[in-house]
């Protein structure tokens, strides 16, 4: 059945990269409300670059990033701030402020953007940390907790203002299997209970199978989307050589130095 809902994010013909180097070229896709959407691909294919363009950290060379009807690329001042408030971001290494406790980290956006009484802000921050199972580490500094805890705290901070969308940049990177599985459970829980839309950059297959509703796959040679859909379906049915190699963990034909180029998705 065709999805008639309006997308929360529409990326339109985006081309992005660094200086003169194009990393992702003329890419378009929609993200529907409440879905867990994963951008995947091999190292260096431009996943994180695309994400940073989607959240407005970098300006794309061309194209639009529409949140509803508002284009983040051209928005300025209050309009831009309003778009930014709609989403939270978890960075690869957490990016928690080292001089603040976890509670202070989560309270920061509340202190800056809400007029709630101090007690209420504290309680909201505590509840967000409890949602990510960090109620026992409220007053710890980021340096005193593990990598998995940092990532969960970063998710709590990203959720502080109850955004509709959460962007996660490689949430499972550098985590042990247990922490990684816990993070997957957390993402699924938050998606089910709060209806948050997740946009995740990842290349961890186990996590992708477990969490993703839909994926797009980028390739660094063609710089475009080479596959789109349900990850398990892509794994089982895709005829695209690159998609097959990725999902079945097949090494490239590197010994002869010849790379198999993959066709653009139809």
């Amino acid at each position: 059945m065709m999805d008639t809902r309006k997308p929360v994010i529409s990326v339109r013909n985006i081309t992005c990269g660094y200086d003169e180097t194009v990393v992702v070229k003329d890419v378009s896709f929609d993200i529907m409300p409440g879905e867990i959407f994963v951008i995947l691909g091999g190292s260096g294919c431009g996943k994180s670059t695309l994400l940073k363009n989607m959240i407005g950290l970098y300006e794309p060379m061309e194209g639009q990033v529409l949140f509803g009807d508002n284009d983040l690329v051209t928005a300025q001042g209050d309009e831009r701030n309003q778009i930014i408030r709609q989403f939270g971001v978890m960075y690869q290494m957490g990016a928690l402020f080292g001089s603040m406790s976890l509670l202070q980290n989560v309270m920061l956006p509340l202190e800056e953007f809400s007029d709630l009484p101090h007690e209420a802000k504290t309680m909201i921050a505590k509840s967000k940390l409890a949602m990510v199972n960090l109620e026992n580490a409220l007053y710890k500094l980021p340096a005193a907790i593990s990598g998995g805890m940092k990532k969960r705290a970063a998710i709590a901070r990203a959720m502080a203002l109850d955004p509709q969308i959460l962007f996660l940049d490689e949430p499972g990177a550098g985590l042990d299997p247990i922490s990684s599985a816990e993070l997957d459970e957390l993402i699924l829980n938050l998606s089910r209970t709060l209806g948050i839309t997740f946009v995740i950059v990842s290349h961890e297959l186990e996590s992708i199978y477990k969490t993703a509703d839909r994926v797009i796959m980028l390739d660094k040679d063609v710089k475009q989307i080479v596959a789109e859909g349900d990850p398990k379906e892509l794994r089982d049915t895709s005829e695209n050589i690159f998609v097959k190699r990725f999902f079945h963990r097949m090494p490239s034909l590197g010994k002869t130095g010849q790379e198999v180029k993959c066709p653009v998705a139809e």
């Binding site: 940073k52 407005g56 930014i84 971001v89 960075y91 990016a95 402020f97 920061l108």
Partner: peptide, 15 residues
């Protein structure tokens, strides 16, 4: 802070 992406985090929080 910039290397640790903390400045990016501030920017995307609207700060």
């Amino acid at each position: 802070m910039k290397i640790n992406e903390e400045l990016d985090a501030l920017t995307t929080m609207g700060l």
